[in-house]
Amino acid sequence: MVNDLSAKARTLREHIVHLAADSPGAHVGGSMSAVEILTTLYFDGVLRVDPANPDDPQRDRLIFSKGHSSAAYYAALAEAGFFPVSELDTYKKSGSRLAGHPHTGIPGVELATGSLGHGLPVGVGLAMADSDVRVFVIVGDGECQEGSIWEAAMAAAHYRLDNLVVIVDRNGIQEDGPTEEIMALEPFADKWRAFGWATVEVDGHDIGELSNVLHEVPLTWGRPTCVIAKTVKGKGLSFSENTNTWHYGHLSEDLKAQALRELGGVR
C-alpha cells in the first residue's frame, strides 16, 4: 500500500515539474514539500470526499490554506478525480480556471486561498457549524506568522473543536529565507500546545507516519489537533531542496529533464 502511495507521490511531483516548466512558473518549493501530506489525505483513505458528489454536506472539508502551492494541490485534485488530469496542462494559461492561487471555481476547492492566514479562521467556522463534519486545514509554516492564525488557534481550543485538524507544512523556509532568520517560529510545537491543541510532530515525507496520525484524529477528545509535518522545502529535486531559490520559479527544459530523471521516470 505504501508503495502504491509512494508511486502516487512521485506522480504528483512529476505533475509539479510539468506545471513549473510549462507555465510562467510555480511555487516549486512549497509544492514539493506538501506532496506526502496531500498524498496521505487524498489517496490513503483519510479524507472522506467524493469527486462524484463534491457538495455532499457531510463530506470532510479540506482547506488548502497555503494556496500559493497550488501546483501540488491541483495535481492531487486531478489525480483524485475532481477534474481531468489533462486539464493540468492549462495551469496559469490564459482563459484557464487553474489560476496561480486556488479558488472555488475549481472542483474540489473549498476556499479561495493564497492570501495567507485565511484558512484557519474559516476552518474554525466550518468546524463550529457542524460537529459531525471534519475539517482539515493545511497551512504553511511561514503562514503561521500571520496573527489571524493565532486568533483562530485560540478560538478552536476555546470551542473545543476536536473535529478540526491543522497540518503545518514545516519546511523551514519562506520566501525571504529560513523562517528562523526571517521571523522565528520556534519553539513551534510548544506554541500550539500552549494554545490548547493536541500537537504531534511527524516526518512529513513518511507516508506511514502521516497515515498513522491522520487516521487517528482527533488525538485528544475535546481538543483540536495540530500535526506539524517536518518537511524539506523543494523535496525530491537536488537543486530545489532546502533553499528558497526555488520558492517560486520557472523550470527550463534542461531543469525539467533533470528533474524528471531524478524523480525516476520520464513521461
Partner: peptide, 15 residues
C-alpha cells in the same frame, strides 16, 4: 479578534 471572527462567520455561513 476580528480576523478570526470574520473568517469564522464566513465559515459558518458556508456551512
Amino acid at each position: 479578534a476580528e480576523a478570526s471572527a470574520v473568517g469564522a462567520a464566513a465559515g459558518l455561513a458556508m456551512s
